[in-house]
Each structure stands twice: as C-alpha cells, then as structure tokens.
C-alpha cells in the first residue's frame, strides 16, 4: 500500500474536510466494505444503499476516529456492518409488514481458509472459533455475517430465545479466553 495513502492518514485528512482524501479513501476502502455490506445484506441494491450510508457516515464522523483504538479499515468495517444491519432490519420489517412472517433464508458461512495466510488476526480468530462447539460457532457466524437477531436464531435452532442467549454467551466467553491467550 502506498505509504502516503494509508486509511489512517486519509481519515485524518477527511476529518479536515479534504474531499480529495475522501475520494482516495473511497477508492481504497470501498471494495472491502462493499464485500461486507453485500455479504450481510445479500441484496445488491440494499448493499449499495448501505455502502453509501457507510461513506456518508465516514465523512461525517471522521473527526471521531481514533487511530490508537482501531485501524482505519477496522473502524470503517464496523460502520459498514452497522449500516448493513440497519438496512437489513428496515427491509425485514417491511417484509414482515407485507407478509406477516419473517423471511427465513438458508445461509452459508463463507470459506475463509484461503485468506488465512493474509491475515494473522484471521488465523487466530478462526482457530479460536474452531474451539467452540458447532452450534455456538454457527450462532456467532450467523449473527456476524447474516445480521440475524436472537429471535431469528431461536427459530432456526428451535429453542427459546433465552437458551440461544445463554449458549451464545458461553461461546463468547470461550472465544474471549482463547483470543486473549492468542493476542
């Protein structure tokens, strides 16, 4: 990556209302962030809306970005996920209003094994996710990649919401122990 144009530097310039830096930041970050909004929204037009909202948020909030707390891509990817989940919830609500039911989608967890070598952090995370039992891992990944709510998870696993919650919390505690050991 060009030293001068790291996401962190570009975000600092965007905070000073540098529109050229914003254009560069979009060019640099949008393919990764679009992959995220697309994965969560699973609908191109919804994903494009979420990407648009992500970058307008980035422009508005760049002055709140603190490079000591996260890399620029991590910070922007969290915004992209939140905007995607907002978009998804809006659409699900519309769908429920129309049909009176939730949309039940079958889902596939992406295979990231090929990306392991590029991301040391991914390797640690996948290793720790492997330590969870299968249902725990699937719960975490469905929430992360599909933006599922506890209610949707409870229907999927045919168990009460509270049981889903307890199982998820056990999984998260295990994940944390493993990640802290790794990090």
């Amino acid at each position: 990556m060009d030293e001068e144009y790291t996401p962190e530097r570009l975000l600092a310039a965007v905070a000073r209302r540098d529109s050229d830096a914003f254009r560069r930041l979009y060019k640099l970050g949008s393919p990764k962030l679009f992959a995220i909004t697309l994965r969560i929204c699973r609908d191109r037009s919804l994903a494009e809306d979420a990407l648009q909202e992500t970058f307008t948020s980035v422009w508005r909030r760049a002055s709140a970005y603190d490079p000591r707390k996260a890399t620029g891509m991590v910070w922007m990817s969290a915004i992209a996920r939140n905007r995607s989940i907002d978009a998804l919830r809006r659409r699900q609500k519309d769908a429920r209003l129309q049909t009176g039911t939730y949309q039940e989608d079958t889902t596939q967890i992406p295979d990231l094994a090929g990306a392991r070598a590029d991301y040391a952090e991914l390797d640690a995370l996948l290793h720790c996710l492997d330590q969870l039992d299968e249902a725990q891992r699937e719960t975490v990944l469905l929430a992360y990649y599909e933006g599922w709510t506890r209610e949707e998870l409870s229907r999927r696993f045919e168990m009460p919401v509270n049981t889903v919650k307890t199982r998820l919390r056990r999984g998260l505690a295990k994940l944390r122990t493993c990640l802290e050991r790794a990090g």
């Binding site: 990764k32 679009f34 494009e48 891509m73 990231l112 991301y119 991914l122 995370l125």
Partner: peptide, 16 residues
C-alpha cells in the same frame, strides 16, 4: 469489533 473484524475484511473484495 477488532476481534471480529477479520471475518469481514478477509472477504474477497467486490468493486462497487
């Protein structure tokens, strides 16, 4: 968010 971020950032890029 940092812990989970690699799950999103490791997805294959898609040009919008």
């Amino acid at each position: 968010e940092r812990y989970f971020a690699p799950l999103g950032l490791a997805l294959p890029e898609v040009q919008p």
